[in-house]
Design a protein around this nucleic acid. Structure first.
Length: 114
DNA sequence: AGATTGACCCAAA
DNA sequence: TTTTGGGCCAATC
């Protein structure tokens, strides 16, 4: 593997099946850097690769979305995920909700398992 | 050319 | 229980 960490991230994200979602940590680990979840999000933010990367399938560990989504807003993302069959659930108390207090992905049933 | 920030996640104090 | 710090790579100023 000689491709940059960035490229590895893109490969993993594209590998996520429809109707499933992966977390930044999950993608980072599959990319080969379990301790670099930060750069996963940054890679997508900086180099969305000609729109080939389904960033909307990448969510927080809690199931919420990144604060600065780039597809047109978090609303757009929820619609896309729902279209693919991802289940959404209201914010669960006792869980870390980081950014979007609106809706969270049902990680219990929709998290992508490599 | 060098320094800083940036879509995160986990562990320890 | 909450808060702080650490860890990594790449792009941008």
């Amino acid at each position: 593997m000689v491709e940059s960490f960035n490229a590895a991230v893109y490969q993993v994200v594209q590998r996520i099946p429809a109707g499933k979602v992966a977390t930044y940590g999950q993608v980072a680990a599959l990319a080969g850097n379990p301790h670099s979840a930060r750069f996963v999000g940054y890679a997508l933010h900086s180099n969305p690769s000609p729109g080939v990367i389904p960033c909307h399938r990448v969510v927080f560990r809690d199931g919420s979305l990144a604060p600065g989504f780039a597809f047109g807003g978090p609303d757009r993302q929820r619609g896309l995920l729902e279209e693919e069959g991802v289940l959404f659930i209201p914010p669960v108390s006792g869980h870390r909700n980081a950014g979007d207090p609106g809706w969270c992905v049902d990680m219990e049933h929709c998290q992508w398992q490599a």
